[in-house]
């Protein structure tokens, strides 16, 4: 649409800028708070310009943690979060890509039944099955382990469904051509299906990484030792009581650190998103 109406341009920019401010301002306040001392933060109003305690605050959370509530170092938590998010993202993709390959390309008894079973679990959020899942994890001795953090979250109906939909769009003739070329199912999977799925795998990786990184309820249940805390849990554990009892500058610094990895993943993978949308390699 080509239009030349200056006030429309002005209005739309104004709305967009207002939106950006609404989203960005809390982030800015978080950042400012992470550079101040506790005394400065509890002043009313809180200063809106960064202070000079940035390095001090960040190095304290990274190496020692807060002095009240949880006292684990945030670097350990970041590592735990990273392990959890990566395991969940990679595990989910690995399992669901194989499951969808089976569902789309093989004919076996009850194939549709299994597909619909997977599909139905889409409708069950984790919270619904969290008590029985916890019981199973605890009976298997998975509490306070990485396996306990990640395994119950790995099965993914969403990813399986998305891969299935994508595989259905790959022309049948490609599979037939591969059969005539002499490729068995595994060769076909590795040589044709996987390379064609590159962009959708990248997109799912971003989504699942953030999903894993932001997990709150499940890690809250299965971790009790500070050495197994994830960053999100760590933030929660640092908050112990009333306003003045918390070291807000350290909590805000942890929050900023918790934001970084998902942001890095999104920004670096963005190119793939666009690529996946623009060119359909089929």
């Amino acid at each position: 649409m080509v239009e030349n109406r200056p006030w429309v341009t002005f209005l739309s920019h104004a709305v967009l800028i207002a939106g950006v401010v609404v989203v960005a301002f809390p982030l800015y306040v978080t950042f400012v708070a992470s550079t101040l001392t506790l005394d400065q933060i509890v002043q009313v109003p809180m200063p809106l310009l960064p202070g000079d305690h940035l390095i001090e605050n960040y190095s304290q959370v990274l190496t020692a943690g807060s002095t009240k509530g949880s006292s684990a170092a945030v670097s350990t938590m970041l590592m735990n979060s990273l392990i959890m998010a990566l395991t969940i993202a990679i595990g989910k993709i690995a399992i669901s890509v194989i499951a969808s390959f089976a569902i789309v390309y093989f004919r076996f008894p009850l194939r549709h039944f299994f597909f619909w079973m997977i599909f139905v679990t889409l409708m069950l959020p984790v919270e619904v099955r969290i008590i029985p899942t916890f019981k199973v994890a605890s009976d298997l001795g998975l509490l306070d382990t990485y396996a306990g953090l990640t395994l119950p979250l790995i099965a993914s109906a969403t990813a399986t469904f998305l891969f299935r939909q994508f595989f259905l769009t790959i022309p049948e003739e490609l599979a037939e051509a591969a059969r005539i070329d002499g490729a068995g199912p595994i060769r076909f999977f590795l040589d044709v299906v996987l390379p064609l799925s590159k962009t959708i795998i990248a997109a799912l990786f971003v989504i699942q990484f953030i999903y894993g990184w932001n997990q709150y309820l499940w890690p809250l249940l299965v971790t009790s030792q500070e050495s197994m805390y994830t960053t999100v849990i760590g933030i929660r554990r640092m908050i112990v009581g009333g306003d003045a009892a918390n070291e807000w500058q350290l909590i805000m610094a942890t929050a900023m650190l918790a934001l970084l990895p998902p942001a890095v993943v999104v920004i670096t993978m963005q190119r793939w998103f666009v690529k996946g949308l623009v060119e359909t390699e089929k």
Binding site: P171, D181, D191
Partner: peptide, 25 residues
């Protein structure tokens, strides 16, 4: 060997690899 109506070339492989694939297998 079969030639399909919609060609059924492997989209992610070069022309060379498309032709070589069957022989490699």
């Amino acid at each position: 060997a079969m030639v399909f109506q919609n060609y059924a070339l492997y989209p992610h492989m070069s022309v060379y690899d498309n032709m070589a694939y069957g022989l490699r297998i």
